[in-house]
Design a binder for these strands. Structure first.
Length: 415
DNA sequence: TCTGGGGTCCTAGGACCC
DNA sequence: TCTGGGGTCCTAGGACCC
């Protein structure tokens, strides 16, 4: 007896672009791109011309001269994404959200209430369409891997149910790049072995896969190709790291560029860490040079940090070390900071109300950190008056913001 | 004409401890 | 003095995901 197919993978189609077409009916049926300098999302009409997310605006326009660029209604993306995932939550609490527009759900426990998994998937699609006005594709299968592939096959605006009896038949005809974990590099390595379908992958000797992809990756892909997917649904995952980065174009690697940029990045990260009381012990920086080669350096501290200035200072030290080791590199194109080893819970005494900030500011205070009190005050002011009311001064200093902060926030994972 | 931003996971080597 | 093995943590890099 086989397990039933109860895992759903639901994925909103061309999400940001669909929202823009929903909000402005004159955009429907037309090739549109959300973004400007870089394409954040493309409508299906634009995809037909080869326009893809991540592409430069210029390149997209070359592929599709009539392409329309539209402004981002970020608040609506968040609202509609939450509402769509919320529809899944009306059927089962076992929902694992992957991103703003995508989630897994296990409906094994609610079929007696709502019907078969296929019925539930159809109901979800109907509701998202009628209540929110958005197309969503759903895959239904016995495993996450298969459900995810099924939803990709279902796009656009479709439903695919993989019957447990015909899983391998479904899987083996598909191209390898539909598999979880197969990106451009792996695809090319497999192609060099003459493997382009999942069926061919399943039939190739595991030894040659392991030789070509490494032992772990080879074994993992072989397992997935034979439809052995060990991953379980994990409903409430917390983030393990928080980071921020800024592409700079081509800027000289000098303090006047580096310091304000790092301060802005540290400010964004530390504010999030403080809000969720999740300071972290490991600080990692990344410097990308003019030729796009990137170098990282990290340090693990004895005590976790979430103070903006401490984080900025640690990051600057690491960046300086990188630059000192690469004396030939005088131009940088990106700076990034990430904090990991996040604590589960912040010490209780640090969650005190603002009234105790005065105490913290006193030298030798029990709370010990004047920095923390100052950050806390900034956080409060921003909560009331908005981000740019106070802070690192990046708005004034003209720190490069190629992507609006509102868009960055959409990609942030719950800490 | 150069390629955004926020994440996860894996690997491999070295330090260090028992 | 030389040898060893396991476990854990740290660091750097890379592939991949949305």
């Amino acid at each position: 007896m086989v397990t039933a197919a109860t895992i759903l993978h639901a994925d909103l189609d061309a999400f940001y672009a669909s929202v823009e077409q929903l909000l402005d009916p004159s955009l429907r049926g037309k090739p549109i791109a959300v973004g400007g300098g870089v394409v954040l999302a493309a409508s299906y009409e634009a995809k037909a011309f080869g326009v893809r997310g991540g592409m430069s605006g210029r390149q997209a326009r070359e592929l599709c001269p009539q392409l329309m660029f539209v402004g981002g209604h970020f608040k609506d993306y968040q609202r509609l994404g939450d509402a769509a995932i919320g529809v899944l939550g009306d059927f089962t609490p076992l929902v694992e959200r992957i991103s703003i527009d995508e989630a897994f759900a296990d409906v094994a426990g609610c079929t007696h209430l709502f019907g078969s998994p296929a019925d539930i998937a159809a109901a979800i699609r109907r509701r998202v369409r009628s209540e929110l006005g958005l197309p969503i594709s759903v895959g239904v299968a016995r495993t996450k891997h298969l459900a995810k592939i099924a939803s990709q096959v279902a796009k656009p605006d479709g439903l695919v149910v993989v019957d447990p009896d015909s899983e391998l038949k479904f899987l083996h005809g598909l191209p390898v790049e539909l598999m979880w974990g197969v990106g451009p590099v792996t695809k090319a390595r497999l192609a060099a072995m003459g493997v382009s379908t999942i069926g061919q992958l399943a039939k190739s000797p595991e030894t040659s896969l392991m030789r070509s992809l490494g032992p772990a990756a080879g074994e993992k892909l072989a397992a997935l190709a034979w439809n052995r997917d060990p991953r379980e649904l994990r409903p409430h995952r917390r983030a393990h790291s928080a980071g921020a980065q800024s592409a700079l174009g081509k800027r000289p690697a000098i303090e006047r560029v580096i310091r304000p940029t790092l301060l802005h990045l540290a400010d964004r990260i530390a504010t999030r860490l403080r809000r969720k009381s999740r300071p972290g012990r490991t600080v990692t920086v990344r410097v990308r040079f003019a030729d796009m080669r990137a170098v990282t350096r990290s340090i693990t501290l004895d005590a976790p940090v979430d103070a903006t200035l401490i984080l900025a200072q640690r990051a600057e030290k690491l960046v300086r070390a990188i630059l000192a080791d690469h004396p030939g590199e005088t131009v940088i194109s990106l700076l990034a900071i990430s904090v990991s080893h996040l604590e589960e819970h912040r010490d209780l005494e640090l969650d005190l109300p603002l009234g105790l900030a005065d105490e913290a500011l006193r030298p030798g205070s029990r709370l010990g950190s004047a920095r923390w009190a100052a950050d806390c005050a900034v956080d409060k002011i921003r909560d009331r008056f908005g981000w740019d009311a106070i802070g690192d001064g990046s708005a004034v200093l003209g720190v490069s913001r190629s992507v609006p902060d509102a868009f960055r926030e959409l990609a942030e994972k719950e800490l």
